[in-house]
Design a protein around this nucleic acid. Structure first.
Lengths: 178, 178
DNA sequence: CTTAACCCTTAAACTACATTAAGGGTATTT
DNA sequence: AAATACCCTTAATGTAGTTTAAGGGTTAAG
């Protein structure tokens, strides 16, 4: 991106400080922003009929997070985006994002690439989820997010892996013995 | 899209007839095309260490299919794309797609939207996979793809749902009794 | 016509993971 | 400083889904 585009972008980003456990998005709300995480950590998750949370993804420094479906179609979201740590974010509204898309073709390109990368990430995760055991999923979580393994509480990791904290505890124990 | 863009696109699409069980992509190959399905049906799947296939998605008439990650990064794919039925497709190469992106801004927009919709679909599927039982997943498969439920062999549906054909058979039986 | 290659179903034995319960540790709030 | 809310672990019991095996049906190939 050139100086001009960077200027156009930064002028439309709003900085917000977010406390631990504060929400960027709650189920039922329409997602209004595309959010850049400058510091801190967020989880995006759904809650099933039994009230259990299921983490779809985490976002830390220099990552983007949003419910793209809700933002795009202006429909109520089924997801929550919540800060796991005190965080600082930069947000751009849908309107401003559309303005950039229209007036600076490079943005279309750049945001298409961001979404493509998110898509690739999600596809690999889905493949893992359906084809690997809990232990294998835990191993590849550690490989993919080495910094997160120590930074997050195990309850959050278990929710991401699709298992209970109890079973994660057991897996870690058996893994350590070897 | 205007007449001009449609013309630019159609001139770069190549028609191919594909037999049942023929591959558009095999594991290890770099994905070269973005493929539009004009008629027929494809599955995109990965194979685990035990040789078991796991269907990530199906694509029928008027849908697009590709391994976007492999196409984009020019890396060997981990996936197979295989015809379940005799099919006719229109394919555009990466080079031509890039040409369209560069010279017709509307394509960037249109393909961003296609990918966004694929992303949304995938995210809902992941949420389902981690938070719903096999029966619930089967029910929503039927709601989402009513035409596919009768069109596909149960082995393929089971692979999509992440269960064995034996267990799918059991579920269907119990569901029918009620 | 015959054989082979799939495909569907049922049922018994098995396993990966969930549930429940309990005890102790460590932050965060009051 | 105390109280409360989280968080981690272990262990017994329970269950959703797998594995293995077997029989029969239907389609494709020699």
């Amino acid at each position: 991106m050139d100086v001009e585009e960077i200027h156009a972008l930064t002028g439309r980003l709003t900085e917000r400080k977010i406390k631990r456990r504060q929400f960027l998005l709650q189920e039922g709300d329409v997602c209004k922003y595309f959010t850049y995480v400058q510091s801190g950590c967020f989880k995006i998750y759904g809650v099933d009929d039994k009230g259990v949370e299921h983490n779809l993804a985490f976002a830390t420094e220099d990552d983007w997070i949003s419910d793209i479906g809700s933002l795009h179609k202006e429909q109520p979201s089924k997801l929550f985006i919540e800060a796991i740590e005190p965080s600082v974010v930069l947000q751009i509204s849908k309107g401003d994002l559309w303005y950039l898309y229209t007036n600076y073709p490079k943005f279309d390109r750049n945001f298409r690439v961001i979404i493509e990368n998110k898509y690739i990430e999600l596809q690999e995760r889905l493949l893992q989820t359906v084809s690997a055991t809990a232990l294998e999923r835990y191993e590849s979580f550690i490989n993919q997010y080495p910094h997160l393994a120590n930074r997050l509480p195990n309850t959050q990791i278990a929710s991401y892996l699709g298992i209970t904290p109890e079973f994660l505890s057991k897996i870690k124990n058996e893994r350590f013995k070897k």
